[in-house]
């Protein structure tokens, strides 16, 4: 038996010029906030941007972007709605406010389903917000999606960076293109992980400050783009060759 969805994944993504996968070895480092703000920042620069939340059991980008009252359009598949100039897709359109307990194999099945039936319009870049770690979702993306680049997020904590190193080793072994590593929640009291990143011959993209006001910006994209966090991310984006 053959799963016919597999061969249609890259067909469904054919209108997308670049795919940036926002990943980390650890949860809680700010991947979703970075992925959402990156999408908004690139959209503000007039790029055509898509954002796909692939964290099915704990999605959160819809809260950051305040997605309400929207549904994908059914058109020989499903077409993501556009919000804040970003084409947006999440399992939240189907799971709503309910908890969705998924074992890895089921999460993988849902991921393949949504990747194969979502019809992305022409995009300069699609940003994938990934669940943490190097389990099924990351392996599925590596297996099924061609032309991906990895944008890695860590914090100054050695706990986070230790898991990121494992992710890096895996991606390097598989020769996956890595844009670089971003250090989020930087505090002056902690040494930067920049030197450790450079030892790995990976580009250190820069650091984003630990922003006390970020919580107030959740759900309000205008406020979010005006935070020190977003302004610094925009500065990093302007000097980084993303695509």
């Amino acid at each position: 038996m053959v799963d016919p969805r597999i061969s249609s994944i890259n067909e469904s993504l054919k209108e997308i010029r670049n795919i940036i996968t926002v990943v980390s070895g650890k949860g809680g480092v700010g991947k979703s906030l970075v992925a959402s703000t990156l999408a908004l920042t690139l959209a503000k620069k007039n790029y055509k941007v898509g954002l796909f939340d692939l964290d099915f059991t704990s999605p959160s980008t819809h809260i950051i972007l305040n997605i309400q009252g929207l549904q994908p359009k059914e058109e020989k598949g499903i077409v993501p709605p556009k919000v804040h100039d970003v084409s947006y897709m999440s399992i939240i359109f189907y799971s709503g406010q309910y908890s969705l307990p998924l074992r890895a194999a089921d999460a993988s099945n849902a991921l393949i389903e949504l990747l194969s039936i979502t019809r992305w319009e022409q995009q300069d870049v699609l940003i994938l917000d990934m669940p943490p770690g190097i389990s099924d979702a990351t392996l599925d993306i590596i297996r099924f999606v061609k032309r991906i680049q990895f944008f890695i997020v860590t914090t100054p904590s050695q706990l986070a960076y230790a898991t990121v190193e494992k992710l890096l080793d895996l991606l390097s072994e598989l020769r996956m293109p890595i844009i670089g590593i971003l250090e989020n929640m930087k505090r002056t009291s902690l040494p930067s992980i920049e030197a450790q990143v450079e030892q790995k011959a990976i580009r250190f993209l820069g650091d984003l400050p630990f922003d006390e006001k970020i919580e107030e910006a959740i759900g309000n994209t205008e406020v979010l783009l005006d935070t020190a966090f977003a302004r610094k991310l925009e500065e990093i984006v302007s000097k980084t060759p993303l695509f």
Binding site: R5, S8, E11, K76
Partner: peptide, 18 residues
């Protein structure tokens, strides 16, 4: 309808096998 996406996937896979 999403059946169209599935039909496309079936034909794409069947073409590969053929």
């Amino acid at each position: 309808m999403h059946e169209w996406a599935l039909a496309e996937a079936v034909l794409s896979s069947a073409t590969e096998i053929a």
